[in-house]
């Protein structure tokens, strides 16, 4: 039996050294139970103490990993690599539109990898390109908010407003996006209402509820259109991107029915949220809908759904 314990201990140590902490813990627990339930073991107390200590150390390691921040900003060199490696709209033609599309892809990749500082620089460069100016503007706001630079977001927003850089239609688009984002992040939307707001920002900073909860990672969602008996078929869609409680999904241009149904503002009462750990039933609201203008998914729709309850 002693030999057996040694074998299990060896396994535990190996798993731990390979970062397989749960597996290591299971082995240690096995030993703990064995010692506890076996009367004839010598030095029982001492052994138990040693095992409990090992389990405690292991748990500390687990906690350390769990705490580890996901928001690591990487170096400019790495950002460049990310940009280069994750653009498919290759400027094979040397065409300016392709080049810009590739730049947008690169900037978006940085954003998706959580490299907000780097993404900000790229989106700033793209502002001047007519085609991508609005999406860049929106993402600039998004980056500022992700970086907790609400001040900068508001300042920039009013700069665009005063500069007549965008057409009024575009401004409305950017405004509503910004408002949604503020709402999503539980920030004070009044700041966006008047120019006067700017001066007060610093005084108002305290009232910001900066901390928005960490949200569960949702990998895909299922939607049932329950009222509609004829086409009550459920659809399942992969989540392409998630920030907090807003998830983005891509809907193929072929799915006319789905695209028509999911208008901005539509409330979905019967949604299943699939996460890597479990499935949750809940509701949500369509908060944005944009037609994708370039890249392999051109013509498809990108849809934001705000998770309401789960």
């Amino acid at each position: 039996m002693n030999k057996n314990i040694k074998g299990i201990l060896k396994q535990a140590e190996l798993y731990q050294s390979q970062g397989l902490l749960k597996e290591a813990e299971q082995q240690l627990k096995k030993i703990e139970t064995f010692i506890q339930t076996n009367e004839r073991i010598k030095n029982k107390e001492k052994l138990l103490k040693a095992i409990t200590h090992k389990i405690r150390l292991l748990n500390e390691e687990v906690k350390k990993f769990e705490k580890e921040s996901k928001k690591t900003e990487t170096s400019p060199g790495v950002n460049k690599i990310i940009k280069n490696l994750f653009t498919t709209a290759f400027a094979v033609s040397g065409d300016e539109t392709d080049k810009k599309a590739a730049q947008l892809e690169g900037a978006t990749a940085l954003l998706k990898f959580g490299q907000f500082e780097g993404a900000l620089v790229e989106f700033d460069k793209l502002l001047s390109s007519e085609e991508h100016s609005v999406v860049s503007a929106k993402n600039i706001i998004r980056c500022f908010l992700e970086l907790d630079k609400v001040n900068s977001a508001v300042t920039r927003f009013f700069k665009w407003k005063s500069e007549s850089f965008f057409t009024s239609e575009q401004l409305i688009d950017i405004s509503s996006f910004t408002e949604n984002l503020f709402e999503e992040k539980k920030l004070d939307k009044d700041l966006l209402l008047s120019q006067a707001g700017i001066d007060n920002i610093n005084d108002n900073m305290d009232c910001f509820e900066k901390e928005y909860e960490e949200f569960i990672d949702i990998s895909s969602i299922g939607i049932s259109f329950s009222e509609d008996a004829i086409t009550s078929e459920d659809i399942e869609l992969d989540v392409s991107f998630q920030t907090g409680n807003v998830i983005s999904i891509i809907i193929s241009s072929k799915d006319h029915q789905v695209i028509d149904k999911l208008k901005v503002g539509v409330k979905l009462d019967n949604v299943q949220y699939y996460s890597p750990v479990a499935i949750f039933k809940g509701s949500g609201t369509v908060s944005a809908k944009t037609k994708i203008q370039s890249g392999p998914k051109k013509g498809d729709y990108s849809l934001d759904i705000k998770v309401e309850s789960m």
Binding site: G19, K64, F65, E68, K70, T72, T74, V78, I81, I82, L85, F113
Partner: peptide
Amino acid sequence: MVSINTEGDRTLFFDF
């Protein structure tokens, strides 16, 4: 070789 890791040597984004 480019590796973007977490502290515990787990890959965070990718190796290249």
